[in-house]
């Protein structure tokens, strides 16, 4: 399979306002002459050295708790935010070099689209469904009324199962499921190669969730798109994704095929995540609970595991040495000191 998107060492640091010596005028003046003057401000490490790839036609799940950097990563991948360092290669071209504010003029803009989180909030309240779906077609494809804009919007509405009669309605006149359909139609209007779905069903009732999920699977098959599926609903990720990435405090701590992540998680955080999924009574499994809150993401110690302190198996070494990336199989990676030992323990049991 050809690689569609390759991310290498991607980082995003946010400076903490007004803290640290190099926030001063002298330091910023010096930096204007010499790029090498280090930035000594306190930094929030939102995404720290993340690397992964998405193949054509693959759907990749991205899970993690709030504050772990999922949304920042999505903003960088969809080129709505600039990255601090690192490379984003999209169908062979490095798009991380393009500033976010001018990315809309690039051809990749229409190939990389995003379905935003909350369909109630992310639709323009003064746009009808028609306007919303037509907007990217006008902006990015230059379609006009003359060149068949209405037909195209009608065809898209049919594709996502939105009755044509609803196209003239405003968001407040649509139900949650219908709004989700408008959102999806808008994103696929410009026939993207990669669709980023940021919690597409979390705001929907369970009664309509299944229809939307099935629609997404069907569209993927019909249009040959790749998906990056961001969610904290692990039950949904499990249904939809081929591969899963688990993030914790800005880093990828486990990565592997979906079934392995769910049936044989290696990292203690992934185990706790799995144990926390509701519906445990329907499945058998012992409760593994995390205590406390994550560490501060501001200037974390590079020589320690970020999960240390909350980790049920954490030992002294975790606070002194950053965990290595252990490959359990060729595709299944976990960043933990104790993965191998655990794996052998599981075998013994």
């Amino acid at each position: 399979m050809t690689v569609l998107l390759e991310v290498n060492g991607l980082k995003k640091y946010f400076p903490i306002a007004g803290k640290g010596p190099s926030g001063s005028m002298i330091a910023s003046w010096l930096r204007s002459f010499n790029q090498n003057v280090p930035d000594l401000r306190q930094m929030l490490h939102a995404v720290d050295n993340v690397s992964f790839s998405i193949s054509e036609g693959e759907s990749l799940g991205l899970v993690g708790e709030s504050g772990c950097g999922k949304s920042t990563l999505v903003a960088m991948l969809s080129r709505l935010a600039d990255c601090t360092s690192g490379k984003i290669e999209f169908s062979g071209r490095d798009i991380s070099a393009v500033p976010a504010r001018s990315f809309h003029a690039e051809p990749e803009r229409s190939e990389l689209q995003i379905v935003f989180q909350d369909p109630h909030e992310s639709l323009n309240p003064r746009f009808t469904a028609f306007d919303t779906i037509a907007e990217p077609l006008k902006r990015l494809k230059g379609l006009t009324e003359k060149s068949g804009l209405s037909e195209k919007v009608g065809a898209l509405a049919e594709q996502v199962g939105l009755p044509a009669a609803l196209l003239g309605r405003f968001p407040h006149q649509l139900s949650g499921g219908q709004k989700a359909r408008v959102n999806i139609a808008r994103a696929i209007a410009v026939s993207p190669k990669l669709l980023i779905l940021d919690e597409p069903t979390s705001a929907l009732d369970v009664s309509v969730q299944a229809v939307i999920l099935k629609l997404l699977v069907k569209l993927k098959k019909d249009l040959g798109m790749s998906y990056l599926f961001v969610s904290h609903d692990l039950n949904v990720v499990r249904l939809l994704c081929d591969r899963v990435i688990v993030m914790y405090l800005g880093q990828i701590i486990e990565e592997g095929p979906t079934e392995q992540i769910f049936t044989n998680p290696a990292h203690p955080y992934t185990k706790a995540l799995n144990a926390a999924v509701p519906g445990g009574k329907l499945r058998a499994g012992e409760a593994l609970r995390l205590e406390g809150d994550p560490q501060s993401p501001i200037d974390p110690d590079p020589n320690s595991c970020r999960f240390y302190g909350r980790c049920p198996v954490g030992k002294d070494v975790c606070s002194r040495l950053a965990p290595p990336e252990v490959f359990l199989t060729e595709e299944h990676m976990a960043a933990c000191h104790f993965v191998e030992k655990q794996a052998s323990l599981d075998l013994l049991e």
């Binding site: 299944a210 699977v217 692990l234």
Partner: peptide, 29 residues
């Protein structure tokens, strides 16, 4: 959970993803 009697309860259970099974197993209402 053993034996839902109302059709709505049964459908609600079918619509809830619960880990195992595939997308074909869940049905919307």
């Amino acid at each position: 959970f053993e034996a839902p009697r109302h059709p709505y309860t049964a459908k609600l259970m079918k619509a809830t993803p619960h880990g195992e099974g595939s997308l074909d197993d869940i049905e919307s209402i």
